[in-house]
Amino acid sequence: MSLTRVHWFRHVFNILLGILMIYPLLWMLGSSFNQENQIFRDNFFIPSMPTLANYVEGWAGLSGIGFDRFFLNSFFIVAMSIIGNLISCSMAAYAFARLNFRLRRFLFAVMLVTLMLPFHVTVIPQYILFHKLGWINTYWPLIVPKFLGVEGFFIFLMIQFMRGIPKELDEAARVDGCGPVRMYFFVILPMTVPALVTTTIFTFIWTWNDYFSQLLYISSTNLYTVALALRQFVDVTGQSSWGPLFAMATLSLVPLFIIFIFFQKYLIEGITAGSVKG
């Protein structure tokens, strides 16, 4: 009896909180179907005269390049970033969490310190570096760093997970003649699935939304990403395209949503497959 009441209470709480969370989504969705000149007039999110025009105009893209292209570009960068982060961060994390080497503590501290400097002051030197490499207006500056483990956030995250794996496993494996490389592949990685999934989700969302580095390094419209293209719809000195902005911003959330729904399942089922459903 009391258990069902607790259940009921929890549901009400969740639903109320849920509305608070989802309100912007509804508002954006509503605005995306609204007449462009009504967006700032309608106070509520249900459009008075729904239309698909915003989607048509938005999908046509910028400077003759369709929005589908921007989606593909974003997907490419995101996919490469995920692969890069998964490989480089898990390798570094494994080294820091499980292996002994000289300067380990020092290098770990260095890794954390690199996270502490506001990136705005390294933008110019980094731009010069990439310019000297001839990488401006290519995707290299956006992808290569991911393969070189510059995202210390994920390294630190994976370290925390790896430290939770019982050391006895290592010892058992070592007794059986398993070297660090095999240990990494067959013991550590399978046990770190929640961290890898978290990394995948975050890398997807953060790279998808990160317009600043994309803004600096990409100039040609045919290389534009979704985040960059969305920034172009609004200009306070001119004629902003609010309708297409909302339409394409809504569409741009769809992949994020799908990825999240798809991977969160693994987040939950990954490591304790079979035993959690009880």
Binding site: Y127, L215, S219, S220, T221, R231, Q232, V234, D235, T237
Partner: peptide, 23 residues
């Protein structure tokens, strides 16, 4: 002529970076 438009909000940040970067 290669077109490289940017919205006003981002224009000056990008331009100053490009000028600083010699590009």
């Amino acid at each position: 002529v290669k077109a490289e438009p940017t919205s006003w909000a981002d224009y000056w940040t990008k331009l100053s970076t490009q000028i600083a970067g010699g590009n």
